[in-house]
């Protein structure tokens, strides 16, 4: 099923090549110019003393991929679903609903990582980075884990909402939360103490925290990773169940 979804995604890219490629390039440039450039004039160094533009680089990749995973999931689980297209047909294929959810997530994550890859190249053209191969490998693993979690959240959101206006408000709230509430571009210490605690213990920030822990202390926080993996597993099952209920199957 994953192969079928990837093929379809490639066909869609091919059929809308100019707009797709444009977005893949314009989006990271906008984030750099409108968020990172002004922020580096305000926050010169991170609280641990690293130059902001170097500190924010992993957060930038997390942010780009977090948003990059959204279009495919929104399109199929909300847009095409409420217009009674495609997803209903997929639901009739011989796969369990959890397999469908998992396959969608893998496909969306691959696309998001592709966005992240382009963004990383563009970023390195503006600002030099000092990550080594091992850092990139860990980054890739933790971004993937983060995207599995976030993708599940997006799927639940897309399946729960049936109205376009409510969907847009939900998207706006989600993107504000993703951008500012996970420590990607602003450290948690900038928030009041209660907020800091809440944000630190919300699972969407676990992968990013783990990566910074690895960068600063060379420690892989298996506890946070295991908790995230467990949440991802049960959330896939839940979304499978939810999808089945949505189709009354």
């Amino acid at each position: 099923m994953i192969k079928a979804l990837i093929k379809r995604r490639l066909w869609l890219w091919k059929n809308r090549l100019i707009s797709s490629i444009s977005i893949a390039f314009i989006f990271p440039i906008l984030i750099i110019l409108l968020i990172i450039v002004p922020f580096k004039s305000i926050i010169l160094y991170s609280l641990s003393g690293i130059i902001y533009e170097s500190w924010v680089y992993p957060g930038f990749i997390f942010l780009i991929t977090s948003i990059g995973i959204f279009p495919l999931l929104y399109r199929d689980f909300f847009d095409l679903r409420i217009h009674q297209k495609l997803l209903a047909n997929i639901a009739l294929t011989p796969y369990s609903k959890s397999t469908i959810i998992y396959s969608y997530l893998v496909c969306a994550i691959l696309e998001a990582i592709f966005f992240g890859f382009i963004a990383a190249i563009i970023y390195s053209l503006f600002i030099p980075t000092n990550l080594i191969f091992l850092d990139y490998s860990i980054l890739l693993f933790l971004v993937t884990l983060h995207l599995f979690l976030l993708g599940n959240f997006f799927i639940t959101m897309c399946l729960s909402i049936n109205s376009i206006s409510i969907m847009w408000i939900a998207i706006f709230c989600s993107f504000i939360f993703i951008t500012l509430g996970n420590g990607f571009i602003l450290e948690f210490e900038f928030f009041p103490q209660i907020m800091e605690s809440i944000l630190r213990y919300q699972p969407f920030s676990f992968s990013y925290q783990s990566f910074h822990m690895f960068l600063s202390l060379n420690i892989v926080d298996w506890k946070l990773i295991s908790i995230t993996l467990l949440i991802v597993y049960f959330w896939i099952l839940f979304n499978g169940f939810f999808l089945r209920k949505k189709f009354q199957q």
Binding site: R8, W11, L12, N15, R16, L80, Q84, K85, L86, A88
Partner: peptide, 12 residues
Amino acid sequence: ENDLDPWLTLEE
């Protein structure tokens, strides 16, 4: 009702 993916070709 038509449930085809609007942005794919018929063959796709």
